[in-house]
Design a binder for these strands. Structure first.
Lengths: 129, 129, 129, 129
DNA sequence: GTGGTCTAGACCACA
DNA sequence: GTGGTCTAGACCACG
C-alpha cells in the first residue's frame, strides 16, 4: 500500500487514513471497483488499531466513496470520479472559501492560488489514465 | 459583528471563530490595523466563554494575522494581506491537495473546481478595496 | 519526577514546568522517545491544575521538543538534541545578547561568563551519555 | 536615543526598555555616571506612558545599574561595569542554565554556543572604551 | 479596562 | 485510558 501514517501528526489517524485513500483514488493508485484491504489486514499492515481503520472506512462509505459489504469486503465505489453526492458542491464551496480566505490573509494572490490548484490537478489526473 | 457561531457544528468553536475572522479580513470587513473586539466583549456578544475567544485570538496571533497586546487590546496585523509566513506555501499546498483529491473523488472536474475558486476570489476581493 | 515547582516564583507555573523539562532533557534524565507523565498524572503529582500542565506541554510541542498524541500520551521528540527549528539560532542570539548585556552591566568579564557557560555545558552533557 | 520599542512584541514595554538600556550600557552608548533622560522626557520621546518608563527605571535601580535622585535626575551608576550585586552570579548561573538547556534541546553544540557568546561579547565590548 | 494565568470541573473524541 | 474543548470564576500585571 501507498499509505503512510504519521503518529505525531495533529490530524487524527482515521482522518489521515481516509484522506490518503481519497488521494490514492484521485492519483489513480486505486481504481473504481477495485478492492481495498480488509479492516484487519490494513490495521495490521499499518500497525494501528482495528477500530481506527473501521472508522476511516465508515467515513468514506458515508461520503459514497467506497462500498462496504459483509461478505464481499470493501471496494472503491464504481461511481467514484463520476457521481457526486447531493450537497457536495455546497460543502466544497464552504471548504474552498475557508482556504481562500486564509490564503488572502497570508498574502496569496489569486493567480498564485489558481496556478497551485492547476498544478495539483495536473499532477493527480496525469497519472489516472 | 458579522460573526455567527454554530454551537452544533462539528468544527470547534474557536476554529469557527478564527475562520470567520479570516473570512472577515479577506472580505474587507476588517482592515489591516483595525481593532478587534476585546476578548470579553466578543465572548459576551457571542454568548460563549472568554477563554474560547482567547484561544481563537491566540491561534490567529501565531499565524501572524492579528496582534495581541495586554492593555491595548487586539488589532488586525498591518502586514496581513501582504506578508506570508515562511512555510505557508507548503501548508497551503497540502491543504489544497487534500481538497482537490476529495473533489476528484466526488467527480468534480478541474475546470469546475477552478471556476469555483475564481468566483470565490472575485467575491472576496471585489469588496476589499 | 525531578520537577520542582515554586508557587511563589515570579515565573509562571507553566514556564517553570517547561523549563524544567528542557533541563531534564539536557541533563539526560529524559531520553529522546521517552514517555512523559500524563497531563493529569503530572498535575496531581505537582499539586497544580491539569490545564497548567497542558499549557506547558503545548509550548514544548510548539518548540518541537515533545510530541503530544491524543490517546497515546506525551513523548520526548526523537529528534530532540539533534534537530533545530528554522529560526532558533536567531532567537538564541537575541536571548544571549540580553544576558550578556546584563552581565556586562554587573561587571561580569567575558572570560568569567564563558567559563560559566562551559562549566554548565559540561555539567549537563557529562551525564547525558 | 538608540532605544526602539516594539508595541507588538510579546515582551512588556518596561522590560524592553530596561533591556535596551542595559544593552546601551554594555555597548558603550551610555557611560558610567552619564545622565539618562527624565521619565517624562523619555516617555514622550518614545510615545509611551510615563508609568512605563518609571517602572523600567525602578527595575534598573533595584539592580544597581542606575541611580535615581529627585533633584539630580537619573544617572547611570558609576559602579556599573565594575561592581556586581551580592547574588548576581547565582542569578546569572540560573539564567544561563535555562538557556543552555534549551539550546541543547534544539541541538546546539557547546562549541557553537560558546562561539556565539564570544562573538556577542566582542561585538559589545569592542565599542565600549 | 485590557489580556494572561490559574483553578475547578464537565463532557467528548480518539484509539 | 489519553488529551482536547468548553464553561465558570478568581486574581494579577500592564499601561
Amino acid at each position: 500500500m501507498f499509505i503512510r501514517i504519521d503518529l505525531n501528526s495533529e490530524e487524527t489517524l482515521y482522518s489521515q487514513l481516509s484522506n490518503q485513500i481519497k488521494y490514492g483514488i484521485a492519483k489513480g493508485y486505486l481504481k473504481p471497483g477495485e478492492d481495498l484491504p480488509s479492516v484487519r489486514g490494513l490495521a495490521s499492515e499499518l500497525g494501528i488499531n482495528l477500530h481506527t481503520v473501521a472508522k476511516a472506512y465508515n467515513r468514506l462509505k458515508e461520503e459514497g466513496i467506497i462500498n462496504i459489504n459483509r461478505s464481499r469486503g470493501v471496494k472503491v465505489s464504481k461511481q467514484v470520479l463520476t457521481n457526486r453526492g447531493t450537497d457536495y458542491e455546497t460543502i466544497l464551496h464552504g471548504k474552498i472559501t475557508k482556504l481562500v480566505s486564509e490564503g488572502i490573509c497570508h498574502g496569496i494572490e489569486k493567480d498564485e492560488f489558481m496556478q497551485m490548484v492547476e498544478k495539483i490537478f495536473d499532477g493527480l489526473e496525469g497519472e489516472q489514465k
